[in-house]
């Protein structure tokens, strides 16, 4: 006959473990907390709104350090109870998780959902390059570098102060060409004038 193991929290087992007649309340509460923590950790380990392959792909492509704040509000990703994380959301906010107003996403993450839809993000997890390609026609921060190109270079697509330097200088030169030419001409004139004056004084 197969011996039936006692239930994990049967009164007899608890009495045996703690060695007393009645299980202390603290013991029971601590075990309940541990169970809750394990269940929460399992549930939150891979939430549906977390796509690490994208960050890994951007890091690999750009050879730059990239964290979850590339698309998310929080640099630690959506898991947890910090600002922009699932644990801190109200019931109303939770209803917007799959939408372009998702409270766990930053403006770039939201713009991806807005332009391509949540399903496109899910579908392209195995091939993030496709998502980047699809974003090469948009420039969220207006720095002159397409969002998809910024993804490839590991710079922020929602911050005009972050862009691949080897590309952005050309854009900035084109945008400020009048100013640059004026500075060049005035610098040149000042130089020629000073050298001429120096020769006259000699």
């Amino acid at each position: 006959m197969r011996h039936k193991s006692p239930h994990l929290y049967s009164p007899n087992r608890i009495r045996r473990v703690v060695g007393g007649e009645t299980p202390p309340l603290q013991f029971v509460i601590s075990r309940i907390i541990i169970m809750c923590a394990i269940v929460t950790a399992v549930l939150c380990a891979t939430p549906a709104w977390c796509f690490p392959p994208y960050a890994k792909w951007i890091s690999k492509q750009s050879k730059m350090q990239v964290d979850c704040s590339y698309c998310h509000m929080n640099s630690q990703g959506p898991t947890g109870s910090g600002v922009g994380q699932l644990g801190s959301l109200s019931e109303e906010q939770k209803t917007k998780l799959d939408t372009a107003d998702s409270p766990i996403l930053n403006s770039f993450g939201q713009s991806i959902i807005k332009r391509l839809g949540y399903q496109a993000v899910v579908d392209n997890v195995a091939d993030p390059a496709k998502l980047a390609d699809a974003l090469k026609s948009s420039d969220l921060d207006g720095d002159g570098i397409a969002d998809g190109v910024e993804m490839e270079h590991g710079t922020l697509a929602n911050d005009p102060e972050s862009a691949p330097w080897d590309l952005v200088w050309k854009v900035r030169l084109q945008r400020n060409i009048g100013f640059v030419l004026a500075i060049l001409v005035s610098g040149l004139l000042a130089f020629v004038g000073l050298i001429g004056l120096s020769k006259k004084l000699r």
């Binding site: 730059m64 350090q65 990239v66 964290d67 704040s69 640099s75 590991g154 710079t155 922020l156 911050d159 102060e161 972050s162 862009a163 691949p164 330097w165 952005v168 200088w169 900035r172 030169l173 400020n176 100013f179 640059v180 500075i183």
Partner: peptide, 15 residues
């Protein structure tokens, strides 16, 4: 004008 210095740093360091 053409090349702001911060462009040379990864964004994670400039947060």
């Amino acid at each position: 004008v053409v090349l702001p210095y911060d462009y040379l740093q990864p964004y994670t360091l400039l947060k």
